[in-house]
Write a protein that binds this DNA or RNA. Structure first.
Lengths: 333, 333
DNA sequence: AACACACATGTAAACGCTTACAAAACATTC
DNA sequence: GAATGTTTTGTAAGCGTTTACATGTGTGTT
């Protein structure tokens, strides 16, 4: 690999001057600049950014931890990438695999690489660890989770409001017997969404009926099981709200298998608006989880706090909204 | 940030010794090792991998270029991540946005970062550039594309065979009037898939009818348009093979809108087996594109060539296979 | 012609590690 | 107890940049 030294020799200037033209900072006479550029070109010079980082003590890289590389996290990352790219920052992406050990070691690796800042989508790391991280002055934003003590570092979605919106959409169509298939209730988002559902019921003066609630686990099969359980118990309902789109998909299938038409006999709302919800039959009415916007917002936070030292206020809690498609219709068909 | 020097002072040894325990190489007396480890712990020392890379001339990082961060590329990357992680290598992911400028600048950035090797999923970069890259002794694997001159660097899918399999599946069910909705025919994979289709027809002695072919663009809407065009032209067919799942999804919708039942009146096969194909109604019969395996294979190549200097032969062309679900049935219902 | 001042360039120390080589410490053998 | 070998540790020179500071060069003013 060709170094700055070789370029400087060919151009008959000092390496400091070459460095100046690379960073096109300071003043370099146009004439010498041309000379240096010609030399760089001739030698096929590529600045070694490892060395640059060591010397300048910044990597222009933000570390990213996501549970997995596929699925909706990709959307989020591409939101971040879009805004970071404009600022000439890069992302170093690692996966946490939803377990504490991997999440921590991902963060450690990122810190060893001296990332200038971090964007973290964690699932198993403790609040304490993150609070400690904040104490160490590591600039990071925590996505999809809020920890009171470091609230300013958090960007999240208003799950409660989303849950409310979903059920409200059903109620507005005249439904009153509404079943609910929840996600794993040890997860905060599942709880919040369910609470939103309850609020919508309360607001419409519909009595909350515990037996219309089924606790699933966010997977397709639990949507199926939810419907089967409800139906076998002889429950009556004209609509089902689901904790996410996967379960909604399972629910639709199970309803169809039971000879019930969606939405004519039973309306269904999902949550998240994942890619396939638009491909279901009927196309799924759901709550849009603004993954891309969250990714963008996180990147903006980083740009502000870690690179520009501004502390401009950003929106920390994003609002979901309803996407009306075909899986919900008026009560009574 | 605490440095190796501070650790060495606290442990009353030289920095070389600390380095030795970090890399747990060479011989370090157990006693001193304990001493050093205690010091590292006390100071909360994190080796600076930037400095390590500069000194050792390796980054333990493989650069990754994909068109986008979301969609099926995520699956591929996670395949790679899985195998690289076991070897303690990391990935630096960048996006090429399917245009030459971004792809090239991504590669350049990766080289500046002195990645030990690259995995490239490119769409617009010229063969020449890549051949030149190979000449520069940059270890890289090119995914989903084959360039004769650097064949050993390429890992791809047998699209021709996939196209053949898809149409064969239809023919085996007794279909003889088979329409085909192709992807953009300036893309090599679209062409190859179509050729596979033709081969299957030929093998079954079915005359190739140009008017049953529609050229789409791999997007949902072109599946819709394909069906509408064919139907409006008064074409008769009992089955449709599609260049990918998106178009198949569009086709299914259009068929249903035209009052035709899938699969009873018209069978449909897709290609790729993307996530949502399993959620369609009917669940889509399609050709499985082994994205994850390709990612794994690419990572293994890298491990072999760039890190272990072995040159063990790997499978360079992967075979797709048929996933039978519900969108295909016997001709005649 | 002397001076001040801006602008352009060079010198060399740092950044935090690794590693070849040298030195020291210890163990073994005769 | 000297000679030898082995293991452990230290010394110091890199790795390829950036950047504070010093030096040089040119212009305008008096």
């Amino acid at each position: 690999m060709v170094t700055i030294k070789q370029v400087s020799e060919l151009a008959k200037v000092s390496s400091a001057t070459v460095s100046r033209v690379i960073n096109n900072a300071d003043s370099v006479k146009l004439e010498t600049r041309k000379l240096v550029e010609a030399a760089m070109k001739e030698l096929g010079y590529r600045p070694n950014s490892i060395a640059q980082s060591l010397a300048s003590n910044k990597t222009n890289t933000v570390g990213y931890v996501v549970p997995q590389l596929y699925g909706s996290f990709g959307i989020m990352m591409s939101g971040s990438e879009e805004v970071l790219r404009r600022a000439n920052k890069h992302m170093f992406i690692m996966t946490g695999h939803s377990n504490e050990k991997d999440e921590k070691s991902a963060i450690e690796a990122l810190l060893m690489r001296r990332c200038d800042a971090l964007i973290l989508h964690l699932e198993s790391t403790s609040d304490e660890y993150l609070i400690e991280l904040a104490k160490q002055k590591v600039p990071f934003v925590l996505v999809n989770r809020v920890i009171e003590a470091i609230e300013d570092n958090c960007i999240s979605l208003d799950n409660h409001f989303g849950g409310y919106l979903a059920s409200k959409a059903l109620i507005d169509k005249g439904h009153r017997d509404i079943a609910y298939i929840a996600g794993s209730l040890w997860k905060s988002d599942a709880i919040e969404r369910l609470q939103g559902h309850k609020e919508a019921l309360a607001e419409a003066n519909i009595a909350y009926d515990e037996s219309l609630i089924y606790e699933g686990d966010f997977q397709v099969h639990s949507g199926v099981e939810g419907i089967e359980t409800l139906l076998n118990a002889g429950k009556k309902f004209s609509a089902v709200a689901c904790g996410n789109d996967e379960m909604a998909s399972g629910a639709i299938g199970a309803l169809r298998d039971a000879g019930l038409k969606v939405p004519e006999s039973v309306s269904v709302v999902g949550f998240d608006d994942v890619e396939f919800s638009n491909y279901l039959t009927p196309r799924l009415t759901t709550i849009r989880y603004p993954m891309k916007e969250i990714g963008q917002m996180a990147a903006r936070w980083i740009l502000n706090r870690a690179y520009e030292n501004s502390s401009m206020q950003l929106q920390h809690v994003l609002s979901p909204h309803l996407i009306e498609r075909e899986s919900v219709c008026d009560a009574g068909g």
